[in-house]
Deep mutational scan, measured.
Amino acid sequence: LVRYRTISKIPQITLNFVDLKGDPFLASPTSDREIIAPKIKERTHNVTEKVTQVLSLGADVLPEYKLQAPRIHRWTILHYSPFKAVWDWLILLLVIYTAVFTPYSAAFLLKETEEGPPATECGYACQPLAVVDLIVDIMFIVDILINFRTTYVNANEEVVSHPGRIAVHYFKGWFLIDMVAAIPFDLLIFGSGSEELIGLLKTARLLRLVRVARKLDRYSEYGAAVLFLLMCTFALIAHWLACIWYAIGNMEQPHMDSRIGWLHNLGDQIGKPYNSSGLGGPSIKDKYVTALYFTFSSLTSVGFGNVSPNTNSEKIFSICVMLIGSLMYASIFGNVSAIIQRLYSGTARYHTQMLRVREFIRFHQIPNPLRQRLEEYFQHAWSYTNGIDMNAVLKGFPECLQADICLHLNRSLLQHCKPFRGATKGCLRALAMKFKTTHAPPGDTLVHAGDLLTALYFISRGSIEILRGDVVVAILGKNDIFGEPLNLYARPGKSNGDVRALTYCDLHKIHR
């Protein structure tokens, strides 16, 4: 019993810090008490220290592992850092350059016999395009090294910054494609005289377009951006097909006994025919423009016929181009109408809503002055909100995010209106959640004399007048207030005048 009563005193000691020596009952000389009392004092002292730490809000209350900052290894790049964003855009520009100039170089340097010394005699450094290609190869190699040090988000939505895990993730992902696209074939085969082989191998750079397509997928929600990307894709495919079309004609031209190829026909049409040795002929500019003209006309199913396939190889390629053109029509131009419709969806919704308003007016036989006010209010409210119901949009977000959005939407009023000066951010967040926005066209009466005042109004834009009878008592403008002081009276009061809008007004109100 003594032991039980001794232990039962522990909660009292913990909360009230009572010393055991003052209790005459606990001072009985028993061996059990002498053993338990020192333990009680020690526990009391420890609990006292913990309570003191909690009340003082000291940093040592938290466990040590929670006080440590997340460790980022040296030379690790955050995937959302500004440097990584700028670097990704730079790589994107280099990939676009590669997609345009690599097929052009591979096709127009394929057994090209233009006048001038061969590239091997001039030297590697004197070729501007080769120098640019070398810079692109170096940048792609540097990009691989950067990807080995860039964080990523795993399946659990955690940012991984450990170098080993980053390397394994990159090896399992895009490393092989990036490595093949970054191989400097110019340096590996330079001086061997195989410019045709170098041009063909350099087309491996186009593998990076797969990554670019995935990154550009984030802009699919913007109709104008999608339309622009589709047109660029169409032009890029036409450019690639033009390079292939020229390569076919250029390879067949020296081996044909009869002059029936499209390059021969082009030379005869523009007065620059090929001679018996295969030299001469149109310039590279004429060849490229004509090839691009043929691919565009074939892809769009126009086909004027002034550039036509004559050999079997050219006919087979033309059939493939027609098939590609039909697929592009289905996948690209078939979506253009939907994209344009999405661009004008706001206008369509406006006309639909206006039609419903006019049908309501016609069905209920609203008189002319009231009908005009109804239409003007709808037009003004639509121009202010673009038909978007803010309350319906915010309803799907958590309250903390709703408060931040409301604070942002009402920031101008909260910053410049005098009653809100000096208020804490928590108070402003709470008030912003209570605001209701209303609009009024010129001549609209917001409050009639004798109406119950259940709200306090803040003028965000425009001006109003307060009338008693036919006498203008006051004219209020931006950041002015009218209405009933909230919670100042037990019952809502009545208006002693009319409140009429002089201009288009936007008002925020808080109800009782």
Rank of each mutant, 00 (worst) to 15 (best):
G443K: 03
N250D: 01
N154E: 13
Y246R: 01
I183N: 01
L93D: 01
G426Q: 04
L446N: 01
V160W: 01
L227H: 01
L187F: 11
H73Q: 09
S383E: 09
C126K: 01
T113S: 07
F296L: 13
W382H: 04
Q402A: 03
Y246F: 01
Y377W: 04
G249V: 01
K425L: 09
R421I: 06
S283V: 01
W382T: 07
I96N: 01
E157D: 12
T445H: 10
Y124S: 03
T438C: 12
C126M: 01
K285A: 13
M433A: 04
Y377K: 01
E359R: 08
S326Y: 05
F360Q: 01
I366E: 02
L236A: 01
Y97K: 01
V142A: 08
Y350M: 04
S308A: 13
L374F: 01
K84A: 03
R259E: 06
E359P: 03
G278S: 04
A213L: 04
S326T: 15
A291K: 01
T98S: 03
I146F: 05
K111P: 14
N250K: 14
S277M: 10
G303N: 01
D137S: 05
I388N: 06
C427T: 10
Q415M: 07
Y104F: 14
A213W: 03
N368W: 06
S194T: 14
A213S: 04
I96E: 01
K287Y: 03
S297L: 01
G280L: 01
C122G: 01
T290S: 01
G280E: 01
G422N: 15
H169I: 04
V86S: 04
R371D: 05
I138R: 01
H73G: 14
H408C: 03
F228V: 11
G199L: 04
I144S: 01
A155Y: 11
E114Y: 12
Q402T: 03
I141W: 14
P184R: 05
R214P: 06
K436L: 09
E375N: 08
A432W: 01
I237E: 01
K272P: 01
S412I: 15
L206P: 01
Y344H: 12
S345N: 10
Y97P: 01
A106Y: 11
I332C: 06
